[in-house]
Design a binder for these strands. Structure first.
Lengths: 250, 250
DNA sequence: CGATCTTTTGACTCTGATCAACCGGGGTGG
DNA sequence: CCACCCCGGTTGATCAGAGTCAAAAGATCG
């Protein structure tokens, strides 16, 4: 029944994630592990961020999926980005910033407080250079995803957009160890995906069928498998975001 | 011939801009005025930011327009946002961040170095709280514009998008005193606007004609006039971004 | 006064939206 | 246990918004 990640301390997924972006010292790893292990369960549709409120309670999405979005008066919805397991939200590098969008959970989810991490990189950045770097990297990534989203929605065809989004999600889930090779969980309804891609549900459905018929993806009950990642990346013009200069050369 | 802003020190436009977001102390105003008055002239198509390069040279666009964009391999272009007079660019609150997009000038432009401001808010934020606040606000605004852009392009019709963008630009130009009431300079070609709105030039042209026919705007040689701003805001569902809590109440 | 760029117009196409109905599974309540 | 219902996915038919192609008409600029 419960399809959430098998029991693992909240710090685990975050540790896995941040390690990708910087070398973490034992002290830093210690800090992550000392972060409150208690995580809270919330149901579908829970508001994680409320537009207009001050962003002062950094949190970690331990499991489950969420999204940031905006509604138009007549019910049209645009999803800006997805918040995936291991992502932090409700924080902003700018002090006293207020939330520009609302965010809600799209599945059951577990959330944990991330204030400790926040304090560490904010007030004691020099003690925790790795954490600081890694958090800055995740902020850059978020911006990169937003730009990708804009290109998808603004200039790509339905076919390209869909492929591109799938690749991006695969990339992100891989980074936190939630991809099983080319197979990723896909708990989103087609309606949700459509609202992210700026398409109608019906058209998205047909586009997915096309991708399947072209043997680029395979999808069954809550999962998507990338059959030919290279071709897919080719049609979508997908490039994993580059957010830092290579530090090691030669 | 030369339609740039009448001679005014570079610090002027920035001062006008930042004063909107925070009370500036005499010391802070002094700092802005002491910023190198020398501004450099550059032609159309000059690269202001190069994707992949480290963002370490904060600059001020004193006059002229620019944009950030990305190209697809087959020539399609998505413009992410516009850089207007009084905007800063080439900086990032995150240290050692690398540019996620390229930016080029769309008109002749004047640019000035903004390192002084940068140093002030970065290393001596407590001495310059107003400047610091104001700069953070502009960063938030940039993000808000990006989100607006996504809604336009993802969920609005051509008619709505066009109206929305015009209103946003009017707002931004007003903030730096470049709007003459409801009339704003519009140095962009329709091709450029189309690339921002995710439309074809032909369709944008027809959409503009519709807006004119509906007496919502008027446009002539390099200028646009908003004839019925309220109606326009209504069709576009336009709301000026709110990026800070009201500080004064009662 | 050409040459080039931008805007405009016309005709046609097509991608993607809309409307409506149906299917299938899982939960629920009688 | 079964009927019902609701939700999400699928299909079909039709429509319309927006793209494409092509060319003309204005602007601008050496």
């Amino acid at each position: 029944m419960d399809q959430r990640t098998p029991v693992a301390p909240p710090s685990d997924i975050l540790l896995r994630r941040l390690s990708h972006y910087a070398e973490l010292s034992p002290a830093e790893i210690g800090l992550l592990e000392a972060m409150p292990l208690a995580s809270q369960d919330v149901g579908v549709g829970t508001e994680l961020i409320v537009e207009g409120r001050i962003l002062d309670t950094p949190r970690l999405l331990v499991s489950g999926w969420a999204c940031r979005f905006r509604m138009l008066p007549d019910g049209r919805r645009q999803i800006f980005d997805f918040i995936l397991p291991g992502d932090m939200y409700g924080l902003c590098l700018r002090p006293q910033a207020i939330a520009l969008t609302t965010a809600i959970t799209l599945t059951q989810a577990q959330i944990a407080d991330a204030s400790a991490l926040w304090v560490a990189i904010k007030d004691r950045a020099d003690e925790f250079p790795g954490l600081s770097d890694a958090c800055h990297s995740t902020a850059s990534l978020e911006e990169a995803y937003l730009l990708n989203q804009l290109v998808r929605v603004g200039r790509q065809t339905a076919y390209e957009r869909t492929a591109h989004l799938i690749l991006e999600i695969h990339d992100r889930l891989s980074a936190v160890g939630l991809a099983d090779g080319a197979t990723i969980p896909m708990p989103l309804t087609q309606e949700t995906i459509a609202d992210a891609l700026g398409l109608s549900v019906v058209h998205l459905n047909r586009t997915l069928q096309l991708l399947r018929r072209d043997h680029l993806i395979e999808s069954r009950a809550g999962f998507v498998k990338l059959l030919q990642p290279e071709q897919l990346a080719d049609v979508a013009d997908f490039h994993p975001p580059v957010i830092s200069q290579k530090r090691k050369s030669g």
